[in-house]
Every structure is written in structure tokens, then in C-alpha cells.
């Protein structure tokens, strides 16, 4: 699904250049659940943003579903993004002015899904994450865990092939964090590929493979659950 080769990215301010990614190579196979770990500033969020096509690399290649997207225009990237990728953020990023259901419906609006189908999809996915009874509430009226479940629902409502989660449990207490991870596991079980950035070794253990990063480089890749990795290759 994802092939990253020799990819670099640096951030420049007026007088300092910070290398965020330094000649990274990474492959992700469809059906995998990958955790990216590493200390603050190691480049894991940058990598996730590039995978999610929210940011573009300075050099190297990035193949997504067989297309090299490294030099695509923003318009084209947006199109690939909305068809294939769902995002989950540490800070939830729900729109305060919209209700839970409307937040979840947002991606469907931009994909021109028929009205009847929209409500049905939203209802289904809210049931799936167990928040259907809060459909008409505003995000501020929910707990952090509930908000993140809404964010998960929004990420999966379009049935994306890939879900990118940037520290999805970072703002949650242990119990709520665990619940969100269960949800992700479930989605992965249903065949969705997941790439998750996390600090927490315990949470990383849910993944099939852990990528450890430091100073913009990949240090090691540990297969956590071999059977899943094999299964994933099989799916491919």
C-alpha cells in the first residue's frame, strides 16, 4: 500500500534548518497495524503527515497504492486523500459549531454521497463506536473519550483503506485510551490499514509492527504479532 524510499524533509526558519526526516525508507502493506514510536521531535508526526498527504517531502519517493504522489498538486492529493484516508488526531479536532452527527457526516458531504445514504452511514458508524445516543450533542458537551470516539467515527465513515492516527490516546485517561485502541483493533480486524503514532509502549503493543524513530531516522522495525504480519502480506 505504502512505499517510502529515501524520503527527507527539513523545516527552515530564518537561520535554523531542522531535519525532520532523514532518508527514510518504509513499507506498509495493506491490512497492517503499524505503530510509530519515538521521543518528541524525532519526526514521527512529520512522517504521518506526509503519509497522509497533508505535507510533502523535500526529496525521495512516496508510492501510495502504486502511484508516486510525491510531486502531486494539492488538488490531486486532496482527491486521493478524501477517497482513501481517514485521520484521527490527539486533540480530536472536532468542529465545535457542528453536532456529533454533523461532524461525522462532514467527509460524506465532500464525497457527494446521497442524502439518505449519508444519514444511514452516520447512524451506523456512530452505533459502531457506541456514541449514537449523543448524535445531536455538540462536541463540548462530551467527555474526551467520547469526543475521540466521534473523531474515530468521522475517520471511518467513508470506509477508508488507511487510517492515520496521531497519538489518538494522548489526551485521554487510561481507560478511555484503551477503549479507543480496542476500536482501532476492531477496524484493523475488519481489514483497514492503520498507522498510529504513539509515545506509549503499552499502546504500541496493539500494533502488528512497531517502527522506532530517532532524529528523523528509522532505528528498528519490530514485528509484534507475527501472525498478523503474515496475514497482512497474504491479504496483499
Amino acid at each position: 500500500m505504502i512505499k517510502i524510499h529515501d524520503l527527507s524533509k527539513a523545516y527552515r526558519t530564518s537561520d535554523v534548518e531542522t531535519t525532520a526526516l532523514n532518508h527514510i525508507n518504509l513499507e506498509v502493506t495493506a491490512g497492517e497495524f503499524i505503530a510509530i514510536m519515538g521521543p518528541s521531535g524525532c519526526g514521527k508526526s512529520t512522517l504521518l503527515n506526509i503519509i497522509g498527504m497533508l505535507d510533502s517531502p523535500d526529496s525521495g519517493s512516496y508510492d501510495f497504492l502504486g502511484e508516486n504522489v510525491a510531486d502531486y498538486s494539492e488538488r490531486k492529493l486532496a482527491d486521493i486523500r478524501k477517497k482513501n484516508i481517514g485521520f484521527i488526531f490527539q486533540s480530536f479536532n472536532l468542529v465545535d459549531e457542528l453536532t456529533v452527527a454533523e461532524n461525522v457526516m462532514l467527509p460524506l458531504l465532500y464525497q457527494d454521497v446521497a442524502v439518505a445514504k449519508r444519514s444511514q452511514s452516520v447512524r451506523e458508524v456512530l452505533e459502531r463506536v457506541g456514541i449514537a445516543h449523543r448524535a445531536d450533542h455538540r462536541p463540548q458537551q462530551l467527555s474526551g473519550g467520547q469526543q475521540q470516539r466521534v473523531a474515530v467515527a468521522r475517520a471511518v465513515v467513508t470506509n477508508p483503506k488507511l487510517i492515520l492516527a496521531d497519538e489518538p490516546t494522548g489526551n485521554l485517561d487510561t481507560a478511555n485510551g484503551e477503549e479507543v485502541l480496542q476500536l482501532l483493533n476492531q477496524l484493523n480486524g475488519d481489514g483497514t490499514t492503520i498507522v498510529m503514532v504513539t509515545h506509549d509502549q503499552g499502546h504500541a503493543d496493539h500494533a502488528s509492527r512497531v517502527v522506532n524513530m530517532l532524529d528523523g531516522r528509522v532505528l528498528s522495525e519490530n514485528v509484534v504479532r507475527m501472525e498478523q504480519a503474515i496475514e497482512a502480506r497474504h491479504v496483499k
Binding site: G52, L54, R81, F87, N93, V95, R154
Partner: peptide, 11 residues
């Protein structure tokens, strides 16, 4: 809101 809309596919 703009970020979220763009992420979920708004041009």
C-alpha cells in the same frame, strides 16, 4: 474547522 474540512476532502 478549515483543517478538518481539508483533511476530510474539501478543496
Amino acid at each position: 474547522e478549515v483543517g478538518v474540512r481539508k483533511v476530510v476532502g474539501a478543496s
